[in-house]
Design a binder for these strands. Structure first.
Lengths: 168, 168
DNA sequence: GGATTATCCATTGACGCCCATGTCTTCCCA
DNA sequence: TGGGAAGACATGGGCGTCAATGGATAATCC
């Protein structure tokens, strides 16, 4: 699985191209080694239904979404609907030799992206934001987490033996 | 898992670099042997919610966080939100051949770090402090611990509403 | 054939790598 | 037991390389 972390801002040129940040490309490339050598080399992008932003991921992740449609044990009906909507609205964005993608107009419009794109690492996937729109949203999320005094409690993974607890 | 212990102060040079204490580097290197040979060589750092300080860890730790988000549960709960906020605010800090990292401006500002960095071992991860801020915080923690001395000795029972921050 | 898309090449600015210096501790031997 | 040498680690700076960006040319689709 790719490990996408942090934020990066890149500019869209007049041909509509924007570089995927190198750390993300590297993480995706590493992840792609474990998969089909002939997997699609690019990103899958679709509108986020929670935010005025885009979600993007590698092929493996989309595959899991598609499988969700076949496996109702894993997904609730609501989630099943969601997966369908996502797949319908998703776009394949091929990457050029320099690691750039071109956002389609519908995607750009949805996220109100004009000249700059903010890439936000979300672990297995990433989000693409109009920078100012993100600022408005993100500050809140950060303050919420802080206010709730949320502590770092790692998800328990079956089989994981790293006995690392929360803080203090 | 890395075992980080003790405190070390190092100076930031005018290029923004600061040496990760040798004992920490050694512990991380040992831990890294057990993982992917091509794992990211550096630290992941993100703001602490509880203190004006930074948390830093190795890739394995961040991967566990990301895996909490990886499942396709779109209706995220508090833990997922937290993981997301952490991942968004985290930064990859690559290590140069001399074992130095460069703190980004946002990270430095958050912890009010200027010229010196205090590295504090925290077991699996470490904290990065402005030295004076740590002293102030530590004094308070000591007083708090002293005041609570008795109750802290009580074993924590599941279901017991230990009005103590911690989990929630 | 015109427009749109993909590959190739050039520029530039940042940062990663290499080497030099400084400082502190430890070890060795008189 | 003290002085000096030597190693280890932190620190400082110069330079080459790479990533982001811009543009030109070649391929593809309608």
């Amino acid at each position: 699985m790719a490990l996408l972390v942090g934020r990066h801002v890149n500019r869209i040129d007049k041909k509509g191209r924007v570089s995927v940040p190198k750390p993300f490309r590297a993480a995706l490339a590493r992840s792609r080694q474990d998969q089909d050598a002939d997997a699609f080399n690019g990103l899958y992008a679709f509108p986020s239904f929670k935010y005025p932003a885009l979600e993007a991921c590698e092929e493996a992740f989309m595959t899991r979404l598609a499988q969700g449609l076949e496996d109702l044990d894993v997904f609730s009906d609501d989630q099943d609907d969601l997966a369908a909507v996502i797949l319908e609205n998703a776009r394949e964005l091929p990457m050029d030799p320099e690691g750039r993608i071109v956002l389609t107009n519908d995607l750009r419009d949805y996220a109100h992206i004009k000249s700059d794109v903010l890439f936000v690492g979300r672990g297995a996937r990433m989000m693409l934001w109009e920078p100012k729109a993100y600022d408005a949203q993100r500050g809140q999320a950060f303050e919420r987490a802080k206010a709730r005094g949320m502590t770092l409690k790692l998800p328990k993974r079956p089989g994981a033996s790293a006995g690392e607890g929360g803080d203090e």
